[in-house]
């Protein structure tokens, strides 16, 4: 139960930081999170979980006065592409980690497929 709660908060913090354009201090992050929360979160809770995400390499912190500002190390899209790579291919060393519905493709083909699609989406956004 406790880990599940931690997981939900981790997800909420990542969501908030991905949505925000700039790195946020814990105080600002807390305001964003508490805007929608039924029961307000404590400052220390948010700081602890943000620290844990930093240790995991998901957030980077930069000093700002007496406090720190936190920002995601990679965008949500980059993580999604990495997960898609995992889901589409099966590297020989990590066989048997996923059971896919349809077939896997080889790593080069998957990479090309994802790259082409990313470029096309980027063009769409520009245009």
């Amino acid at each position: 139960m406790v880990t599940d709660l931690g997981g939900a908060l981790e997800r909420a913090i990542m969501d908030a930081l991905w949505t925000a354009d700039t790195p946020l201090r814990v105080r600002e992050l807390l305001d964003v999170l508490n805007r929608e929360a039924a029961r307000p979160l404590a400052y220390n809770t948010v700081q602890t979980v943000a620290e844990r995400l930093t240790v995991k390499g998901l957030l980077a912190k930069t000093p700002d006065g007496n406090a720190f500002r936190y920002a995601p190390t990679r965008s949500r899209e980059e993580y999604t592409v990495a997960l898609m790579m995992d889901a589409l291919t099966d590297s020989p060393d990590q066989s048997a980690i996923l059971a896919r519905f349809a077939e896997q493709v080889d790593a080069d083909a998957a990479r090309t497929l994802l790259d082409v699609l990313r470029d096309r989406t980027a063009d769409d956004r520009k245009g």
Binding site: A87, L88, R100, A102, L113, L114, T121
Partner: peptide
């Protein structure tokens, strides 16, 4: 749901 246009379906 993963937000990506390439279709995949799998379970963990």
């Amino acid at each position: 749901v993963l937000d990506h246009p390439v279709p995949v379906a799998y379970c963990i």
